[in-house]
Nucleic acid binder design. Sequence first.
DNA 1: GTCTATATGGAGATAGAC
DNA 2: GTCTATCTCCATATAGAC
Lengths: 233, 233
Amino acid sequence: MTRATRAAVEQVVPAPARKSDETRRRILNAALEIFRERGLEAATMREVATAAGVAVGAAYYYFPAKDAIVLAFYEEAQHVMRPALEAVLARKASLEATLRGIIQTKLNTFADNRQLMSALASHVDPKKPLSPFSAETAHIRESDLHFFQQAVMQTKLKLPKNIAPYVPRLLWLYQMGVLLFWVYDESPEQHRTAVLLDRTLKMLTVGLRLAALPLLRPLHRLAGDLLEVVYGD
Amino acid sequence: MTRATRAAVEQVVPAPARKSDETRRRILNAALEIFRERGLEAATMREVATAAGVAVGAAYYYFPAKDAIVLAFYEEAQHVMRPALEAVLARKASLEATLRGIIQTKLNTFADNRQLMSALASHVDPKKPLSPFSAETAHIRESDLHFFQQAVMQTKLKLPKNIAPYVPRLLWLYQMGVLLFWVYDESPEQHRTAVLLDRTLKMLTVGLRLAALPLLRPLHRLAGDLLEVVYGD
DNA sequence: GTCTATATGGAGATAGAC
DNA sequence: GTCTATCTCCATATAGAC
């Protein structure tokens, strides 16, 4: 079959995958627009379906629940952010600068959908699918973690042996905290979050410099002990 | 009216306040039992009303929403804990021991209703009434904060001037974190939480001892700066 | 004020059309 | 596989009985 022939066939009999992708996309876009306008809670699946020109059941065929739409948005954002995050790492700057770059990239990406993020941020319960700690979001979490691992490796920090393995996960957690704060930060232009981010990053840098002091040995032991149990296999 | 007469009257015409209190109590108890058995999400207001022997509307007359029942439970627990918390403070022990006592008292009080607490813990959004950060729970928060204030005052710590005012609130937040961890801690007998609590409290003690070091001055400045903006009026 | 009966509107499930 | 029509069950609202 030549390329032209195949194209012709596809015009007559549109590939099913193509068609369904388009419906899915239409539902997703309609939903996101309504979420942004009216807020996630206020939006109903009926509105979404109507706006997308399908029956309610169709929306549920593509997204098992309202939350799943938000998850799809998040997955897409994750994908969109990747080049920017890789660019940050490529700069091979200090850990502080790299972390700042990573977190700032996320804030920028989500800026237009800040209140939409509350759906993801507000579920702490690991059993809820949308929780950043759930099994359903594990793949996002892992791929995210990867950036923090790289950030740490690049700066060849001298970290205590018993703490080092947990540092990327701790930084990921820190970043989640900043994001959570940001989602509910109603100060003008989220100014408070900007200060939070700046000061805590600086504290991190100072803290890491001090971490090598032998005076802090007892803290290392306690922390290592704790992390082993909390993150324990 | 003699005391005997009044008692007689009350027997014939039960004071309305008395009657409604009893209904409210019946609904509350029925609800808590069902919540414990089947879990908060799975429990429906219908079940609760039926179990309490009233119509659904009656349940809503006393509690504007399902969440409000959980809040009522929490308020009651707060009241029940008070003597135990005051006893902890009366011991006038070290800050570490006092904090340990306060937090352990809470864990003990809530032990039978651990999963019920998830309703309170899982709402981070300050706009949701049940959130520990909401306006609706402000009175609980303040009264809670009071214990941490006392704990700090008793130990006459030498804290940097620009940080001292925020320490009770930071400790309250720390305690919320421990509680949150505990709610979702599925390790046997919540062993992980026990380790978390123990180690972090010890780290706090070590940390406070080191806090006085002039070496840490830059951290003080950054932290004070941060707290002023984040907790800013 | 206390409570019942009933209504409303939404999330999500399902049977079956194509 | 894709989608519509329809159903169930629930939270919450409301009219009005007592």
